[in-house]
Each structure stands twice: as C-alpha cells, then as structure tokens.
Design a protein around this nucleic acid. Sequence first.
DNA 1: ACCCATTGTGCAACTAGTTGCATAAACGCA
DNA 2: TGCGTTTATGCAACTAGTTGCACAATGGGT
Lengths: 190, 190
Amino acid sequence: MSLPHAILTALLEKPSSGLELTRRFDKSIGYFWSATHQQIYRELGKLEAEGHIRTLPAEQPARGQKKSYEVLPAGRAELARWTAASQDPKPQRDVLLLRLRAAAVVGTAGLESDLRRHLELHQRQLAEYEEIERRDFPPDRTGPQDRLRHLVLRAGIDLETFWTQWLTEALKEFTALPAEAPEPTGDPSG
Amino acid sequence: MSLPHAILTALLEKPSSGLELTRRFDKSIGYFWSATHQQIYRELGKLEAEGHIRTLPAEQPARGQKKSYEVLPAGRAELARWTAASQDPKPQRDVLLLRLRAAAVVGTAGLESDLRRHLELHQRQLAEYEEIERRDFPPDRTGPQDRLRHLVLRAGIDLETFWTQWLTEALKEFTALPAEAPEPTGDPSG
DNA sequence: ACCCATTGTGCAACTAGTTGCATAAACGCA
DNA sequence: TGCGTTTATGCAACTAGTTGCACAATGGGT
C-alpha cells in the first residue's frame, strides 16, 4: 500500500499529470519506489475516486489531453497518517544472493559475467547519485526538508557503494576458485 | 520466478518435507528469499507436476502425513540453467526511505519511534548473522562451497551494518531538527 | 476413552506489480 | 493533405506474493 503514498508525496512537491509523474518517478522517487505509467494512472484514478486528489481545472479533459492533479486536504492527512504509522520491514528478497547460494550447489558456470554486469550497473547508479548530491545538496542549503531528502540520498549512495564493494570482492573470490565448483551429483562423500 | 529455484537449492542441500523446508527458510535461505509455508506447498506441487522433484517413497502419503521430496536430474538442470542466466536487478522498493521523503513534506511527527524500532530489529539481525558466522565459518573450512556461502552471509552482515549505521545517523538528524518540520499547507512563501 | 495442543498439509481469495496492447491528440514534414 | 512519430492516457490479462482459514494425524495428559 505504498504506491498511492509515493504519488501523494510527489504531487505535494508539485502538481503534475500522469506522464510528468512517470518521468519524475524515473529519476527521483523511483530510485526507492519504482512504478510504471500504467500503475500510476491506475492509482491516480483510485486516489481521485477516494477524494484524495483532484484534477486541476483546465481545458476539457479528453483522451490524449494533459490532465494535472493536485492533492486535497484529505490526501495530505492520509499521507501524514501513513508516514507516522509503524510498519514492519519487508522480508528481504535478493535474486543475486540466491543465485550465488545455488551456485554453491550446482556450480558457478556462467555466473561471473553477470556479476560483472551488475557491478557496472551499480557503479553507474552510484555515479548518478553522487552527481545529484553535488548538484542538489551543496554544503549551504540545510533547511529541515533538505536534510531529510539528503539523508534519503545518502542511503542510496551508501547502498550502491556497498554493492560495488561486495561485487568486487565476490569477483575476486571467483577468480580464486577452482575452474568449476564441485557438483556432488548424489554422492556427498567429499 | 525465484521461489521454485530457492526450493530446488534447499532440496539439493538436503531432501525435506514441506514443513522442514519452511523451517529452513525461516533460518537460512529465507534471510534473502523469504516464503510462507503456503507458498512452499504450492510450489512443491508445481515442481512435482513439472517433473523437477519427486516424493521420496515412504509410507502412503495421506493428509497430515510427512512427505519428503528430492530433486530429479531435470530439476538440477533447471537450477543450473537459471543460475547461469543473466538477470536484471529488480527495481528498489524501500518503504522507510519513502516515508522519510514524505516526512520532508508532511512533517516528521510519529516517525522517530519507528526508526528506533527498525534500528533495534536490524541490530538484532546483525547479531544473529555474526553468530552464524562464528559458528559456521571458522577460519579453517574453506572449500569452494563454504567460500560462496560465506560470501552470501557477508552480504547480509554488511547490509545490516549499513542499516544500523544509517538509522543511527538518521536519528541524530532528527534530534537536531526543529520540533516539527514545516508543513507548507498551500503557502510556499517560506 | 476423551480432549486438546501441536505438527503437517493444503485450498481459496485477495493484493500488488508487470506485460502487452489500444487509443487519441499534436507535431513535424514532404 | 496525408503519414509517421511523439506525447499522453488507459484497459485487460497475467504473475507473484500474502492472508485467512480448514482439515487430518499424532502425542500427551486426565
């Protein structure tokens, strides 16, 4: 139940149309809560039906016509309620770690190149975050809102840093490993 | 499409019944791929229908009767295929970061106590991982399989370490913040 | 002999997210 | 003036994961 709240946050920062929201999700909020335009349109419909947002009155809203939304007081209240409500952390799900664990049983063949690819992706993401930090968070501007947003960005930076380091370490292990991990095909005598 | 492969991995490590799998997911594989017993039973049924696993012949399998599974060659082949296949990283989804971002807009009221709770949970998880490391990965035993599994555990440890540090930092910011973040309820003049 | 907690298996309905496609206006241009 | 591309909105079907509950056997106590 987080996507509607992600949308409310984005709309409070700036009223937008569905497509504008999609773009902003791609380069800001989407870094920690991604969504496709289909999801976003669907949620905008629900949020409007619930009275949390409304369309900004403009030209008649025909198909293919830009339609901007703004948050209503009820929507702001709902977002505040949700933000303050206690929530348990979601159980982890990481495919790459699972694959490594599987590789310990069926062998590491084919895995290394994908690790390399992931390493590059994380390095690129890290560079992007650091660019944003340089651009949007100079040492001056330190209002409360800036500090909170900077904190979120720091989480992104530190996570990407962790993954690049871990993947580098993992690749080092791989080259140190025998050509192929033993595949105990039914005989666990070793 | 990862749960069946998580189950295949677990079954290759040791043939088990549904409930045994559930328990092992709770304390090992589940650290990075969690699953409920309902999911596991459902997948076991599918995997059996596909010819990837079979029941170990034992007493007649009636309801409430323990039923153990083992992996067939086709299942092992499928797992090896999946492990080697390139996969894109899933887009991130982190509710806590989203809530912090929302708090920058609607205020931080009520958030701090939940941050504290999360910090405690992560500290506890970290302690558990470190206990496992002490127990299962002494400096000797360094076969290829051990090294891979240790690598996975290190990822868990480092991630939990990151979260405890980040949450500590976040809480520090909170106490430095004004009692309540400004709520620009429609008037962004400040 | 009976009760009840525990162990073990499983179905059904629901929620959230993804994929694929459809539709329509606007814009550039030949 | 017609044609293809981009912008913008949206539906429908599918997949994966969660929640809630049901049912059977077993084992221990009374």
